[in-house]
């Protein structure tokens, strides 16, 4: 492997979760938290019929599709989502309009109703806790 070089211009590229993950139809548990993903998560996530636990916190994911399978998992240890990311991996501060902020309890409820999260909802729904770690 030593003769392989990696010269992708990572710094300037907006990363995203690859569509190919949607092909993993048997996937039950997907944990991609604490990475440097950005942008909208692919709709293919919703095609994962077996998905029971999805963890995407501490990235810069601005939107995820509604995943019906996870709606039933209100009391589980799931789920997900995005926040304002891992600053060390980014040069620029993410505008808060593009942030989704959540805690796992809040997400479990909100995923039923929303494609993405509005920070203002935090004040209207009184979530039991908020997790915005790694900011």
């Amino acid at each position: 492997m030593s003769n392989h070089t990696y010269n992708f211009p990572f710094i300037s590229i907006q990363g995203s979760i690859p569509l190919e993950l949607g092909k993993l139809s048997n996937l039950m548990y997907l944990c991609l938290s604490y990475n440097a993903f950005t942008g909208a998560a692919p709709d293919g996530l919703a095609e994962m019929k077996g998905l029971q636990l999805l963890q995407l916190q501490s990235n810069r994911i601005t939107k995820i599709p509604t995943i019906p399978r996870l709606i039933d998992n209100i009391h589980g240890q799931s789920t997900f989502v995005a926040d304002c990311g891992v600053p060390s991996a980014f040069d620029e501060v993410l505008e808060c309009d593009n942030c989704t902020i959540c805690c796992k309890y809040y997400c479990n409820v909100a995923i039923v109703h929303f494609d993405s999260f509005d920070p203002q909802l935090l004040t209207t729904h009184h979530p039991p806790s908020i997790d915005i770690a790694s900011n």
Binding site: I13, G15, S16, C31, L32, S33, N35, A36, Q55
Partner: peptide, 10 residues
């Protein structure tokens, strides 16, 4: 693959 520094290219 949590707690890494993966930044996926489109």
């Amino acid at each position: 693959l949590s707690d890494n520094d993966i930044q996926v290219m489109s």
